[in-house]
Nucleic acid binder design. Sequence first.
RNA 1: GGGCGCGUAGAACAGUCUGGAGUGUUCGCCGGCCUGUCAAGCCGGAGGUCGCGGGUUCAAAUCCCGUCGUGCCCGCCA
Length: 593
Amino acid sequence: MVQGMRSHGAGTVRGGDIDDTVTVAGWVQKRRDHGGIAFFDVRDASGIVQVVADPDKHPIVNDLRMEYCVQVTGTVRKRPEGTENPDLETGEIEIGAEEVIVLAPSKTLPFMIDDRVEIDEKVRLQHRYLDLRRPRMAANLRARSRATSAIRRTFDELGFLEVETPTLINSTPEGARDMLVPSRLRQGEFYALPQSPQLFKQLLMIAGVERYYQIARCYRDEDFRADRQLEFTQLDMEGAFWDRDDVLATVEKVLAAVVEEIRGVQVPLPFQRLTWQETMNRFGVDKPDLRFGMEIVDLTDHVMETEFGVFRSAIEAAGTVRGINVGAQEWSRARADEMTEFAKTLGAKGLVWMVVEGDGTLRSPVAKFLSETEQESMKKAMEASPGDVLLIAADRWRTAVEVLGGLRNRLGRPFGHDDLAFLWVVDFPLFEEEDDGSITFSHHPFTSPVDIDEMREHPESAVSKAYDAVLNGVELGSGSIRIHDPDVQRQVFDILGIDAETAQRRFGWFLEALDYGTPPHGGFAFGVDRLVMVLQGETSIREVIPFPKTQTGVDPMTGAPTWVEEDQLNELGVELSATALARREESEAEELA
RNA sequence: GGGCGCGUAGAACAGUCUGGAGUGUUCGCCGGCCUGUCAAGCCGGAGGUCGCGGGUUCAAAUCCCGUCGUGCCCGCCA
């Protein structure tokens, strides 16, 4: 920290330095000019310290503006009685300026370097180098570095080998759209950027590495979300000769080390485990936030004989009636409509709501259709007290629980406290049914089934050896025990409708490797961005990525992606489509205007 | 691909529903005053394509249509 141009980090000067001559360098956070005396705060990576100067002796302080880069030499002194600043680490002292040098002035800022103002994100990204000066962003960068450092340290201690895998590869079968890179030497052919190092790490197991990890950049060309970018960083790991619990225990150690590094707290191990089935039943999502209850209740038995048409038809269609008690909430007609609309976006046909009145009766548009017994029975099942709002969905099982799960997240999610609720979700279904009735893998096609015969006979309900790690409702990552038996691998492709020829063409190189004595193996990968996001209390992944892109994949600072020279395209054997050319003309016209 | 929100000075906003002169607030910027502030204070000043295009109207930041940008979500995606 302390190097040639300075004797101290600005944030490190303390009472013990009183009467010493120090030199600090950094940025002017704020200047407060009182005429005969002037103060300015110098901020560097270590913190902030106040400098006091007499403008008559040091007229240069009249010129200082926010974010001027300065070097200050002066004497450390105790602040006068009553002027200490408890909000500053250095608040007991100040530096009496003897020499103030402007190393570099700053233009008027596009926005202030201040955590207290919410600035439009596009403006922040246009000047990310200024945005990153804000303490919050600087802290996020540091937390990220400490996280990766804790990860490496832990894997090191556990005897893992860090191996780099290529980023110009073949298309990987992860399910997402690939980012493609055209080949110049082989015009017309493309590399894909990895969605994960999946097959390479399995090859490393076959290669006898046994314990592998990598902090790997991964790419998925799908639409953005608050927690999704085109490129992101995964902690990727794999081990041979171990089973699920070995993987989980290892990942727990790594995650606990990161939490301890960033938050300074011990996470109780092992993490809670729930099967996918139980998770869906109780929380309606496969990544539940366990910091609050508000669990889904099965009401089907309580209304089995009901006359109420909505419930009746759900039950007769072999569906289910489920409810949640969202507790005492502000509940108006408008609110009810809003939540019904929200439920519909999740696939519900409607939403039944009931408010428990002070006398225990139910206020609801549908109360008149429900018998006294049914009402009492439902209230009891949902442990309803006066004031509580009860929400009920009647539908096929998956829809009903997902609708309530969405409402639970929306209405119950706690904010503003720093509990960490880790969870393993295990026993995921092996396959998923698509809308068109076809079957697809729910994880990736190298995930081992729990039972091979079960997989052949009842693929729709077959359970896999896949598992997810969840933290506070955020899916950190997933993993599985892989298929190491080439015969099983071929059967899985068969069930997925991938014929031998296609499998051979796409993954032949991998299937061949499986034939050479592949050890049983499994692994995991979690998103470093998401983990740091949660631990830093952020709700967007962009806050922990130094230079992220906007929702349309644009970097407002560099302007990427951009048009390239015709020559470059020619070298690559790439020609723009009519649509693309029209876009280019349009944007060139805009450029001129 | 779809739904919803937002776009007004360098920044954060109010004004838009209910049309009437670019009106206003805070910060920053420029000038002045000020010896203990710490988001200093006081006085004065500059700064605007109300995202863009079209329409309605005597009159549009405001209403309508389109478009672009941006955010959240669904689809998609671990």
